[in-house]
Write a protein that binds this DNA or RNA. Structure first.
Lengths: 148, 148
DNA sequence: TTCTTCTTGCGACCCAGTCGCAAGAAGAGG
DNA sequence: CCTCTTCTTGCGACTGGGTCGCAAGAAGAA
């Protein structure tokens, strides 16, 4: 059940421009890394890849840019069950929320979109009178190939 | 929708004993702190409270004991949307899984048990052939009192 | 081109969590 | 009650993710 690719690459830059946020070389590099990523990256991986595009990018600029994107609601921060250390992973926020399943044996991350998840969120908003900004469902266990 | 208190205090010690795990003074202190907690505690809070019961308890013993309890499936580790720093919070694992809602304004944590959540987990296990060990749903947003 | 305001790199720093080690304690078996 | 093995502990040093203050530099409006 793969995710739909509903957004055009390069869109992140436009979205920031629309909000009147200044564009700089390090930011362009970091945005480009996030947009072209084909798996979940953590801050140090983003730094390494961004430096290939702009060698002067600093660690703290990566963290500051990630904060900016989080505040703007353009990326989601994941833990992925802390399979590898304590850091966080990042991905672009597209239309639908999805569930992350992490295999405790092989480390594979599977994403899953579910109507039931959407119903659950509606139920929370209604029954608990809670206005949801971000919802994160992470599952740890054994994938089809690894379960015993 | 409060949680049912289905377990007797002191039970954690018994559960470890049943599994043939050695009991020691620092462990007794830490278990007692976790069992009598009335809110989610992080490692440093657990350390502080445990030291009131056994003043020699060390930081690393707290972390090692938390690891032990996690491996035994007796506690759950939570992020609570990282409202306060990067650390983790812990709570006893009782019968039913529940959802944690964190208010981004007042910091209040609300717990919620939902049949829909159970259905969602069943659906994952079935449709993705994924054997769930732990499922964590955390929601950030605005509680009834804080939403605008 | 100027000027304000935002962003950056740098370096120092903080905090959560981990590790290796030698000393100490649990508890099974006699 | 003692012995012996094995597990656990405190300690201290360390790692790694993330933050902060600052002075220099760049964006972009006018």
């Amino acid at each position: 059940m793969p995710l739909p690719q509903t957004e055009i690459p390069g869109r992140l830059q436009t979205q920031l421009a629309e909000r009147g946020i200044r564009m700089t070389a390090p930011r362009r590099a970091i945005l480009s890394v996030i947009e072209t990523a084909n798996k979940h990256l953590d801050a140090s991986q983003i730094l390494r890849k961004a430096r290939l595009l702009d060698s002067s990018v600093d660690r703290s600029t990566v963290y500051r840019t990630l904060d900016l994107l989080k505040r703007q609601g353009l990326i989601d921060e994941l833990d992925l069950m802390h399979l590898n250390g304590e850091g966080h992973f990042y991905e672009r926020k597209l239309g639908r929320d999805h569930i992350h399943m992490a295999c405790l044996r092989c480390g594979k991350i599977t994403e899953f979109v579910s109507k039931t998840f959407e119903s659950l969120k509606s139920q929370l908003q209604r029954d608990c009178r809670f206005q949801i900004v971000v919802a994160r469902l992470e599952v740890g266990g054994y994938c089809a190939a690894c379960r015993h």
